[in-house]
Amino acid sequence: MSDEFKLMVWRGDASGGAEVEYHVPAETGMVVLDALHYIEHNLAPDLAVRWNCKAAHCGSCSAEVNGEPKLLCKTRMDQYVGQTVTVRPMKTFPIIKDLVTDVSWNYKVAKEVPLLAPTAPAPFNMQQIDVDRIQEFHRCIECFLCQDTCHVLRDHAGQNKYFGPRYMIKIAEFEMHPMDGVDRVPLLAHEGGVGMCNVTKCCTEVCPQHIRITDNAIIPLKERVADRYYDPIKILLRRLGGKKDDVSEPKTHAVT
């Protein structure tokens, strides 16, 4: 390993900024967040970087390393031997200072997702086969790297049309819950904007928790929307039964 790493760290705020060069001594097992801490402690005490657990569990230290959305605490420096390591804030969100972005839009979206509304009082008696799917979604640490890389939000500024992959997971988590009684399909089709996703799987590629966001959440939700709004036979049968497309259909599961 070389003796030191060269880092180009974006410094600035909402009014503008530029990459600043730093040199950091290399240490075994070092991650990008370690290098930034070295800079903070020795070279630039005013460097702003959000972090918390340093164990890839809190989702705080999301940024872009050499252009790739990554957790700073999980990105080893030894994969960049011989390269300049460029660290920039997440592009999709407004910058507060240096590497810290304002991710509050995500929390506003979170409030629009109806929470679990159980069809029976807790504690539930559920079979493992019924909760297999949603347990994968529980791994989400809300790092928002999927939101950062989603081209609908990143390149097309579609925040008013699409909730983003993180909230597709959130909706899937409730919608596929065996004890949930809320119908979120109209939300998905309209405000949630699942149709804006063109399943290019970038969210899945950057997820540090390895959740198969597209295959296991977004596509199954798209199929549920197709059941309700696109499948002509199902639409016909539903209308013959006197139901309207946009009216939520309460789910009625037998309580076991």
Binding site: P69, T149, H151, D155, C197, C202, K222
Partner: peptide
Amino acid sequence: ACYAVDKPRPRYSGET
């Protein structure tokens, strides 16, 4: 590709 730097197409409506 993910997080590519190319200029995006001006109009995008996904699969809506």
